[in-house]
Design a binder for these strands. Structure first.
Length: 518
DNA sequence: AAAAAAT
């Protein structure tokens, strides 16, 4: 206990505030030391090489308590593993730690049931009768004991798309808040409005019997909200707060309606994006630091299906004394989602493929999401398809909140089968009926040389095949650059994406049968 | 040759 308190002190005046001062140097540090850190990372993440199915892949999760190492590294970075001999030792150590993960004196054992987590009867009832859960999924079994057991260690967790991450952190939040205390006690930060709404719905459902209430940034500015609207004047009395980073930050600083002094747990959903420099890093760090300053005793959870190498290193350095779980990138592209590429001779052929091949098949299958690169192409493609008599909708960040909500509501209800979207929907969106994902444009970086955005690719195709269901993804290619980028994607995940002829009447149908969808 | 949030 004394040890835990000591650690908290370090957290309060140590790592987080330091970042603000050294933000500029941070970049250089990543470049200069990433080589060493990568080496160590590779040996720590020892995962079986060939894996046959999903279960085995999930068995391959590596759980490591990095607390001591992190402190070592902070004190004397020169002790970072630098010889083969040491790497070997670290690998052996990592292997052992998979089976025996320690937080202080408490060994974590994987939770086979929800009962053994000491949850309140009300919360258990929500899990069983509302959520219809029977027992923890793999990632839940591995992380829940670490989340809900003192000393409430920080956690960085990577797990496959659709494997049940949301339940991990929602249950984590709900298990730690006191319903009798009418102050904010848990915050969940998400990258999009849609994800805020989706996560809030899960919290409300799971919390049904607990008396815990929620507030979210999504219904703050509109009158027709699902729960209740939060006026800017009122201090928030709900226990669980879900929101996008900008509004949360404003609530904490300018509006002063979000009191952070009783926050016990802070969750970042899609954490790699939330901590990425080209993402929400500034806002996220600010939120973390403000909470830390107001009471220095807050558990931080990071969840995502992807952690690119750079942001992973940043997370490990930023979140003090964290347990972590990582998955090799090669193990992330699930067999359950069949991936294909269709080479189109010209841009017009892409429309042709959509209308004559994908739409007829898709309408029989379930629901589909077509991803495009820009807002403009989303609305243009939408207009074009609609003009040709094809029923679909589109969503992108340029629409009003009301329009976005309406489009999502229509898609959720099944009224619309085909949704065109920018990357506003590439992450986290959970709709079981989505069986088909079409990359109308391949995700690429915004700056030359326009290399592929691997993480975005994985998140997009992960919109299908939710929770072990079957799914398929089609990549439409026109230019040589498209071809090169798809090849890079194949190399990156070590997969083979098979070719489908664009002008063959039966090819797509046949392929969908192979994918187990037709 | 970007998206997201928000100012």
């Amino acid at each position: 206990m004394a040890e835990a308190e000591k650690n908290q002190e370090v957290a309060a005046d140590g790592l987080v505030p330091r970042l603000e001062k050294e933000e500029k140097e941070e970049d250089e540090e990543v470049v200069s030391s990433s080589g060493k850190q990568e080496e160590e990372q590779q040996v720590v993440e020892k995962i079986p090489e060939k894996q046959e199915d999903l279960m085995e892949k999930l068995e391959g999760l590596t759980v490591t308590n990095v607390a001591d190492k992190a402190e070592d590294m902070a004190d004397k970075p020169e002790t970072v593993v630098n010889s083969e001999r040491q790497q070997l030792d670290a690998a052996v150590e990592a292997e052992t730690e998979i089976k025996k993960v320690m937080a202080d004196d408490t060994p974590y054992t994987s939770a086979k049931t929800f009962e053994e987590l000491n949850l309140s009867p009300e919360l258990l009832q929500g899990l069983y009768s509302e959520m219809k859960f029977e027992k923890p999924s793999k990632i839940q079994a591995a992380t829940l004991p670490m989340i809900v057991t003192p000393p409430y260690r920080n956690l960085i967790a990577q797990a496959h798309n659709g494997s049940g991450k949301t339940t991990c952190f929602v249950l984590g939040m709900l298990s730690r808040v006191d319903p009798k205390l009418k102050v904010p006690q848990a915050i969940c930060v998400c990258p999009t409005r849609e994800l805020v709404i989706q996560n809030e719905a899960v919290v409300v459902k799971m919390a049904k019997y607990t008396g815990v209430t929620t507030a979210s940034t999504a219904n703050a500015d509109s009158s027709n909200s699902l729960t209740h609207s939060v006026s800017r004047r009122d201090r928030i009395v709900d226990q669980v707060i879900i929101g996008t980073p900008g509004t949360l930050k404003r609530w904490m600083t300018r509006d002063k309606i979000l009191d952070t002094r009783s926050i016990k747990i802070l969750v970042f959903d899609e954490a790699d994006q939330m901590l990425d420099q080209s993402g929400f890093q500034d806002d996220s760090m600010r939120i973390m630091r403000d909470i830390d300053r107001s009471q220095g005793n807050c558990q931080v959870l990071l969840f995502s299906a992807t952690f690119g190498e750079k942001v992973k290193q940043f997370a490990l350095r930023t979140i003090p004394r964290a347990n972590y779980i990582f998955v090799e990138k090669e193990a992330l592209s699930l067999d359950a989602i069949k991936q294909y590429k269709i080479h189109c001779p010209n841009p017009g052929a892409k429309i042709d493929v959509l209308q004559n091949r994908i739409f007829p098949a898709a309408e029989k299958l379930g629901q589909s999401i077509i991803f495009v690169r820009t807002r403009q192409s989303a609305s243009e493609l939408h207009k074009r398809l609609e003009a040709d008599g094809y029923k679909c909708t589109s969503i992108q960040g340029g629409l009003s909140h009301e329009e976005r909500d309406h489009v999502i509501q229509e898609f959720r209800s099944g009224e619309t089968k085909i949704l065109i979207a920018t990357d506003v929907l590439s992450r986290g969106f959970d709709q079981a009926q989505v069986t088909l994902v079409i990359n109308y444009d391949i995700p690429v970086k915004s700056v030359p040389p326009y290399t592929p955005e691997f993480e975005t690719y994985l998140h997009r195709i992960g919109r299908s095949g939710r929770f072990g269901r079957k799914g398929a993804a089609f990549n439409l290619l026109v230019t040589d650059q498209d071809e090169r980028n798809l090849r890079k994607i194949e190399q990156h995940f070590n997969i083979m994406i098979s070719d489908v002829a664009w002008d063959d009447d039966t090819a797509i149908e046949k392929v969908l049968k192979d994918a187990g969808l037709a």
